[in-house]
Design a protein around this nucleic acid. Structure first.
Lengths: 348, 348
DNA sequence: CTGAAAGCGCTTACAG
DNA sequence: CTGAAAGCGCTTACAG
């Protein structure tokens, strides 16, 4: 004999009462509850998850899908871990555990998610790295599994999402450049189908338009979203006849590859070319000059994300109509030395 | 009606036969199996995990515990994701899913693991960031849950572990320094109770001893295992009267904080001070001079890790005595420019 | 080769 | 306040 049955036998009461005591139901004698709780600790009893889940139709677990294919997904970036840390604080109060679901690079994200969904492995899920067109959103909507997207997509509507303010940052960065007299402003965006690249580009366009600067396709550098992508951006700039005097990075770690290659070619970041990154992150701390970028509390973003997911779960469970959360997270500029200078007086 | 019952009804056969067909049991008519498989796809049926787990006593899921408290755990390092990628390939063949279990910084790793273990959430688990004394090993041994440690510990015995060759790398690095004439060789190791720091220090000691160099406590720099720790190491070196002419880093990302601070003070890494890092990683690619460090295939390490875990699971399930895997993973030096020079001719 | 039935470990109406 | 019983969705001996 094992499990709750063993515990009940030990206490010489029924398993129903043990269960009720453990689960904090009100209709249990306080004396009895105390005995049960103590015995549970003593015997190290913890309810078997599968039994509970099967009976309750809930796993008390939510998932966070990670695409290890995405370079920035956990590789060389503290973004996800910080957000997850924030989520955990909230979920703990609801006694919900968070597990990370890493989709392998050789597996299709859609198939992977479908498997997780169908198995009813989690009560809710966060998806990230949303694509321009993202079939996962339809899948989740169809399957009726509560979810929140960290990132927008053109696909679907009426779902909950949180996203960083890619538009606002890109536009503001262009304003900053323009205010210092820059007219040839390059932008580095991902060369994949991540939706955030589109939004960032939109913000860049809006910024240029507001200052009467025509967009030049040559200055839109589509590169890998990584340090290496930054290096590639540098190479392309070095190959240009008329070089930009400023560059805006959609992903701040690009600066790590960008800086040294420009420096080697005698183009000093912050001096000969102004640079602005997206997010102010610890990984760029040791760059010289310090990178101007935009900050936000990843912890708070995680808190909001968990809150939105819990609300999705509760609302769906109650069969109520959902009022989806659509939140664009604001970011504040952290001024540093990488964009202080205007364009060099002699055009290169 | 739902689940397997619905599918059985649809096909007008019993749920037992459906189950057997789906699970590839031999005693099913091939014609029947085909019909079942097709209907399952058509209706999008996937067995409910909780039901299976409860009946089978297995979850077909293994966990990889992550401590987000550890700076290097996923924050700014591709180590874990690469290993996990390697594990997934192996596990997929056994139809086992890998989930990541992130222990929050504000939760005790022992308590967290205990909860996961007791709930029987996974069939096996990998723990990492092993400490000098690590109670998790006793916990897992006691609970009889199959596990493999990524990293050694002084605690317990007879368990399976895989570890990188911290001893061999440290000793070899000292040999390399000594061969170029260095006698004042510093070492940066973590200031926490991670077991790998001890082993690395042992290798360093062995290297010094072999070359008749006395260990100087001043040159053992205990710092945070991060870029910031590298910066701290630089600060301590700059404060020394008699500076080391070489430094060995237990964690390669320390170089990212170390380089710029030394450079600012006019001490050129690779020129005035030789530097060797631990692992050759993509994150250090843009350092100048390139960092000499040691390489290994993280993918293969993941493959081995998954293999060891599967073997633990199978052996325990069969009630057989376990022959634990204890593997020290060899690493090969990648010579670069950061340790080419001997000590400056005039001692500083 | 297939069906009927037991039972994995729980929670929860229901009766008392 | 407590106990007895049903049943969550599966898999698997067992019988035929």
């Amino acid at each position: 004999m094992k499990g709750i049955r063993q515990l009940a036998k030990h206490l010489d009461i029924s398993i129903g009462t043990v269960s009720r005591a453990l689960n904090g139901k009100p209709d249990v004698n306080e004396e009895t509850r105390k005995r049960v709780l103590e015995a549970a600790v003593e015997l190290g009893y913890v309810p078997n998850q599968s039994g509970r889940s099967l009976r309750q139709g809930a796993t008390h677990t939510v998932g966070f899908m990670l695409e290890s294919g995405t370079a920035s997904a956990l590789g060389g970036d503290d973004f996800f871990m910080s957000v997850i840390e924030g989520m955990q604080g909230v979920l703990k109060h609801s006694h919900i555990d968070l597990v990370l679901l890493p989709c392998g690079a050789d597996e299709d994200p859609y198939d992977y998610l479908q498997r997780m969904v169908a198995r009813r492995f989690v009560d809710g899920v966060v998806i990230s790295a949303t694509k321009r067109e993202d079939p996962r959103i339809d899948l989740l909507t169809r399957s009726n599994l509560p979810f929140v997207a960290l990132g927008r997509s053109r696909t679907g509507s009426g779902y909950s999402w949180l996203d960083m303010d890619f538009f606002g940052v890109a536009r503001d960065a262009v304003y900053r450049f323009a205010a210092r007299g820059h007219r040839r402003i390059a932008i580095a965006i991902p060369d994949n189908d991540a939706n955030l690249g589109d939004i960032f580009l939109d913000g860049y366009r809006a910024g240029l338009r507001a200052h009467g600067i025509a967009l030049e396709e040559e200055l839109v550098l589509r590169v890998e979203s990584s340090e290496e992508g930054g290096a590639e951006a540098a190479r392309r700039i070095l190959a240009m006849n008329q070089k930009p005097t400023a560059i805006l990075l959609n992903y701040e770690l690009m600066a790590i590859g960008l800086y040294p290659l420009l420096n080697e070619a005698g183009i000093r970041p912050g001096g000969d070319i102004a640079v602005i990154g997206f997010r102010k992150s610890a990984q760029t701390r040791f760059l010289h000059p310090q990178l101007t970028a935009y900050t936000l509390s990843l912890h708070d973003l995680g808190v909001a994300l968990a809150g939105a997911l819990l609300s999705e779960i509760r609302v769906k469970r109650a069969g109520m109509p959902v009022a989806p959360a659509n939140i664009i997270w604001p970011m504040q500029v952290v001024e540093s030395d990488s964009d202080l200078n205007g364009p060099p007086t002699r055009a290169s």
